[in-house]
Design a protein around this nucleic acid. Structure first.
Lengths: 214, 214
DNA sequence: GGCGGCAGCATTATCAACAATCCAGCCAAC
DNA sequence: GTTGGCTGGATTGTTGATAATGCTGCCGCC
């Protein structure tokens, strides 16, 4: 055993640990500890930290080590605004490329969302929400936008369950998603972009009213 | 002296070397050489390469080292599309915040652009173009968008002088910029975003017709 | 002439030891 | 009681050595 994992592998694991919440915001990332828990070489850990620092998930101060970055509400709003712009482009492109088959699969996800919501399972609803967005982006076939959105979204993990808890928000979200799918189905790029932007603008509003929660 | 520079410093220097073109696309980045030329420790060089890899300026293959990444025309178009969306947001925000003083400074840059173009100095014109965009983004006060656009733009260095060489393109660009400034002056966010998007869409068209040039 | 294998070289990845730095706690002086 | 400086421990940053890997050129064989 003791297979020391390579840098990209270490990066993925550390990233997953942060996103899953098993490493709390502001928690210090001590290299020696990570070497043990991630079973990687120290060099790999350092490389992973450098990447995550660059990505914005971690802050690294010279001679003082790294810690999980805590994004403020203001930053979260900024990030969502950027995401809205990018996903808008993604939706536009997806409208150009979406075939009936793809649309059907998207509708299936939406339907599952609807039933989960009816069950009161907000957590599952929120996860399906993420899946829907990811699928649309996949259809868009736009590597740059996909990569950027993925990076931005990862910084919002701590806020992702917050908006859906607002009374009435989940239902509204469902309707907004339906509007997006309608635009995709009609292959109307302008409408798809507008619907996606509108949706994420509503999410932003919701986030603002929800507050930063701690 | 021979003060070994720290990781962020090394990152900046290496990045600058790539952007300035003193390191060609596909050129191998040999760690030992960089240690000498950048006067940094090996760890710092490795960290810098990891960041640049993550950023997309460099490709790194395990056990085979890193080389300057060559972005294809298709990628350049993608990147420009993403930039258009983000700078659109930036322009919208800038319209909200721009005071007459800031507008005046932007107009001054545009005026300089006009005279440079009249002189036939396309290189200077292109640089002022970059400055204008950067200033607008600065006014927007949107750290996330600014960071992302900076990162995206850096990947387009090899294409930045290409579009302006197209006959008539420089003049059109000037008019498009003027339209953006008009919208900012009227503090019309919608118009500013639309003008910025339109401008960058034109740049994309120009890039497509210019071809990848090698 | 072309192809597969082999050896040597160049380079990267890892490891371990060392140096530099920072931080917490303590103590003394005011 | 508070402030200032010191000291020990913990942690990161750097360096040299070593292992692993990939590549290139050569040679013999077909």
């Amino acid at each position: 055993m003791a297979v020391t994992s390579s840098t990209p592998e270490t990066y993925e694991r550390l990233r997953a640990a942060i996103l899953s919440g098993s490493l709390e915001p502001n928690e210090r990332l001590v290299e020696a500890d990570l070497v043990r828990s991630l079973e990687a070489s120290r060099g790999a850990v350092r490389g992973a930290i450098a990447r995550l620092d660059h990505e914005g998930l971690v802050v690294h101060e010279r001679n003082r080590g790294a810690k999980v970055r805590r994004v403020s509400l203001e930053e979260a709003v900024e990030i969502l605004e950027a995401r809205a712009a990018l996903e808008g482009i993604g939706a536009r492109e997806a409208a150009r490329r979406a075939d009936p088959d793809a649309i059907a699969r998207l509708r299936a996800v939406l339907a599952r969302m609807r039933t989960r919501l009816a069950d009161g399972d907000l957590l599952a609803t929120s996860e399906l929400n993420g899946e829907l967005h990811a699928r649309i982006l996949r259809i868009a076939h736009h590597a740059t936008v996909e990569r950027l959105v993925e990076s931005l979204s990862s910084q919002l993990v701590r806020y992702q369950y917050r908006t859906i808890l607002i009374p009435g928000r989940a239902g509204a979200s469902l309707a907004e998603h339906a509007a997006i799918l309608d635009a995709l189905e009609m292959r109307d790029g302008d409408a798809a972009e507008a619907a996606m932007r509108a949706h994420l603008d509503r999410v932003t509003d919701a986030l603002r009213t929800a507050g930063d929660g701690r």
